[in-house]
Amino acid sequence: MDLNMNLPTYSNLKFVSNAVYVPNIGARGVIVFNTGSGYNAFDAACPNQAISTCSTMTINGINAVCGCDNVTYSLFTGQSNLQYPMKQYRVQVNGDILRVFN
C-alpha cells in the first residue's frame, strides 16, 4: 500500500510522533507512525486477543490501545507488558510516498 503524505488524510505523518490509521488493510487496518528517525507500521489488530468486534486498536498519542482489554502498546516499539507485540510491517520512504508492505 502506498500513502501519499501530500494528501490531507496522510499529511500528519510529516510530523514527529503523529500516527494515522489506515482501514481495510491487514487484519484490522494499519497504524503508521512517524518516529522522528523513520516510520513504523503495525497491524491494528490487538495482538493478544482473538479477532472480534473490540479487537481493533485505536491511537492515543504515541500509543495504540486495544479496545478489548485497554492494554497500551508503544508505537515506537510495538511492545506492551503482555506476551505478544504488535505485528509490524516494513515501510519504505520514497520522497513524500510511504510504501507499507510485508
Rank of each mutant, 00 (worst) to 15 (best):
F42Q: 06
V20R: 07
M5C: 00
M86G: 10
I25H: 09
I97C: 00
N63H: 13
G38M: 04
A50E: 15
V32E: 02
A44P: 04
D2M: 10
Y84I: 13
Y10L: 02
M57T: 05
A45M: 14
T72N: 14
P8K: 11
L7S: 06
V93L: 10
K14R: 15
P8F: 04
S52Y: 11
S80M: 07
I97N: 02
Y10V: 00
N24P: 02
C54L: 09
V71H: 08
N48S: 11
G29A: 06
I31K: 05
N63V: 03
V71L: 10
F33I: 06
C54K: 14
L98H: 01
L13E: 04
V22L: 03
V20D: 02
S52M: 06
T53Q: 15
L3Q: 02
N102K: 13
S80K: 05
I62H: 11
R90D: 10
N40P: 07
T58A: 13
M1K: 12
R99S: 11
G26T: 05
N94F: 03
G36E: 03
S17M: 09
L13P: 01
G95Q: 04
A19L: 07
P8N: 12
N4P: 03
V93R: 12
N63Y: 12
G29T: 00
K87Q: 12
N81G: 13
T53F: 14
D43E: 13
T72I: 13
I25G: 00
Q79G: 07
N24S: 15
M86V: 07
R90V: 06
V65Y: 05
N81C: 11
R28C: 11
F76I: 11
M5E: 00
Q88V: 02
T58M: 09
F33Y: 14
G29D: 03
Y89Q: 06
T53S: 15
Q88M: 09
Q92C: 07
T9V: 07
S55L: 09
G36S: 04
A64P: 05
L82Q: 15
S37M: 06
G38P: 06
Y10K: 00
A50V: 13
F33H: 01
V16N: 09
T56L: 05
N48G: 12
P85M: 12
Y39I: 01
A64R: 03
D96E: 15
G38L: 08
Q92V: 03
P47Y: 08
A19M: 03
Y21T: 08
K14T: 08
T56P: 04
Q88T: 09
G61K: 14
G26R: 05
N12T: 12
N40Q: 15
N63R: 09
T77V: 11
S74M: 07
C54Q: 12
C46P: 09
V91F: 00
I62Y: 09
D96A: 15
F76T: 08
L98I: 02
F33K: 01
G61R: 12
Y84H: 14
N4K: 04
Y84W: 13
G67F: 13
L82A: 12
N63Q: 13
N4R: 01
S37V: 09
P47W: 09
I51K: 15
M1V: 11
S17V: 07
A64W: 01
V91H: 00
F33W: 05
A64S: 13
